[in-house]
């Protein structure tokens, strides 16, 4: 038995499948692929499949880390090939490697966001991102109760880069991700909307990489 970390890209219409549904989907894929997974023990045994980080509904990814435990000695390459023959459209195992970092070490995510020029101009976006006064509402917990909290978005934007791509504006942005604090580009867009006083919804969002605290890659 050994631990294996898969990096699964999620592109196209499958981005509308929620994090919760992804688990069931993977469970079926490993069954079809006949991969000998370790099952949890207990009243209701299920295969051990762990998505290290949630991906918001509607967001694509270049490679989401997923940990599994393989029984026996099937090689990582074999696992990857078998799974890729059984995955639904839009999901692809980019790599299968022995885990290096611990899941708690994830600290940042890089996203590529596209906005339509019909919705927002490059100058407006630049102004909003550098204003220092972006905020959004985020649900959180206080004393066990669900409450809405105002989050200072500006201080959490680690870095960003703008580009022009045909009818769209491209924004590459690094935001906090991980088990302690998360900010996703949809919340960022809400903050931009609030700042500009108009609805700005991204055309597409893709998570391109994950990093540790010192901004090295997460492996």
């Amino acid at each position: 038995m050994y631990d294996l970390r898969l990096y699964i890209s999620k592109k196209g219409r499958i981005k509308f499948v929620s994090h919760l549904d992804m688990f069931r989907l993977m469970q079926r894929a490993v069954r079809r692929a006949e991969i000998p997974l370790w099952y949890t023990e207990g009243f209701n045994p299920h295969p051990y499949i762990s998505f290290l980080l949630a991906l918001s509904l509607g967001v694509e990814s270049e490679g989401e880390p997923v940990d599994i435990k393989i029984l026996g000695d099937m090689s990582p390459q074999e696992v990857k090939d078998r799974l890729n023959r059984c995955m639904p459209e839009g999901l692809y195992v980019e790599s299968a490697v022995k885990p290096f970092n611990k899941s708690a070490e994830i600290a940042y995510g890089t996203y590529k966001v596209l906005y339509s020029k019909e919705d927002i101009s490059e100058n407006e976006l630049f102004e909003a991102l550098t204003s220092g006064s972006l905020t959004c509402e985020k649900s959180g917990k206080s004393g066990g109760k669900k409450v809405m909290k105002t989050v200072d978005v500006s201080q959490h934007i680690k870095s960003f880069k703008l580009s022009s791509e045909n009818e769209d504006i491209g924004l590459e942005v690094v935001l906090p991700a991980g088990s302690t604090f998360n900010l996703n580009p949809i919340q960022l867009s809400q903050a931009v909307s609030g700042y500009l006083g108009k609805e700005v919804v991204p055309v597409s969002v893709i998570r391109t990489a994950l990093h540790t605290e010192d901004m090295t890659g997460f492996y």
Binding site: G12, R13, F16, V17, L57, P88, V203
Partner: peptide, 24 residues
């Protein structure tokens, strides 16, 4: 996927009802 459809799907409940692309 149709761009118009892609822009409305984030606004509805359970958008995967309307995307197609399921296995098989």
């Amino acid at each position: 996927m149709d761009r118009k459809l892609e822009r409305i799907l984030p606004l509805v409940q359970k958008p995967a009802r309307y995307t197609g692309g399921e296995l098989n």
